[in-house]
């Protein structure tokens, strides 16, 4: 159920899996975001191209992670399949974790693609030797952001709106994770909050890897990134459990 079920439900519920939606939102939009901030950086004379390229490419993983996770869980309300799914004996942890695996893979692909194409367009030198480290860092970033996606999906299930929430969380991550403004330059409280969010440590690690750092040098950052993601994933699973229990008590999900 973890893998086969995950992939089938991803295809069934993620309604952006259509080239007319996927290509513009997943492959073209991140390049615009990268270009926008690189040129802002250039004209303001702060930060290198690589700083903005890496920050925005990794941060853009939050679009697939947040939206796809919310769609594949809260989308059940539109297909009216939730009642049927919840009347099965399926283990809920395996069910929802299974659904998150394709989301993670997709988020990884989107960020890798953005980084690769963005680097090529801007002429930023990303050494071949750095790519294995980049791939691992982005995989961890995508997983931890999907952890937050699970929590957000539980909320979306309850409030019956996915896009609004995902957009807000995306905006928060864009500001707080040091994507375009280094944490040192943010007000203290924002930097502190940013350090508790997914992506922050992965972006920092990825910048160091691109600058030539070894994997062992960034291991502590990656560990913290993974830990934050795990905490959010556990919170998300607990929230989903609560939403289900609450619905059995108070009929809050209007299951068919």
């Amino acid at each position: 159920m973890l893998t086969v079920g995950g992939v089938i439900s991803f295809r069934g519920l993620f309604n952006w899996l259509n080239p007319y939606v996927y290509v513009p939102t997943m492959l073209v939009a991140p390049i615009f975001q990268i270009l926008l901030f690189v040129y802002i950086g250039r004209s303001a004379g702060v930060g290198t191209d690589a700083f903005y390229l890496v920050g925005n490419a990794v941060q853009y993983a939050s679009i697939p992670c947040l939206f796809a996770m919310a769609n594949t869980i809260a989308g059940e309300r539109w297909t009216q399949t939730l009642g049927i799914v919840l009347s099965t004996p399926a283990n809920r942890v395996a069910l929802f974790v299974g659904r998150s695996l394709p989301v993670i893979a997709n988020g990884w692909f989107v960020a890798m693609f953005s980084l690769f194409v963005g680097g090529w367009v801007l002429g930023v030198d990303l050494p071949v030797s750095a790519w294995p480290g980049i791939a691992l860092t982005i995989a961890i970033a995508s997983a931890s952001c999907t952890g937050l996606g699970l929590l957000q999906a539980a909320l979306a299930l309850r409030v019956r709106s996915t896009a609004v929430l995902s957009n807000i969380v995306f905006g928060v991550l864009l500001v707080f994770t040091g994507t375009n403004v280094a944490l040192d330059s943010l007000p203290e409280w924002m930097a502190t909050a940013g350090r508790l969010m997914p992506l922050t440590h992965a972006i920092e690690a990825c910048r160091e890897v691109v600058a030539g750092a070894s994997l062992s040098a960034v291991a502590p950052l990656l560990l913290r990134e993974g830990l934050i993601g795990a905490v959010f994933a556990v919170l998300g699973l607990a929230a989903l459990r609560w939403v289900e229990a609450e619905s059995r008590r108070h009929a809050t999900l209007e299951l068919q």
Binding site: M1, I8, R11, G12, L13, L17, T81, G83, I84, T88
Partner: peptide, 27 residues
Amino acid sequence: YVFGGDRGLYERLSAQDNLRYFAELYA
């Protein structure tokens, strides 16, 4: 559990994949 009406299926999937998914859920 089966209810009437035309909802309650994954529209984008084939009949077979709908069944495969629930076969997974029912182990």
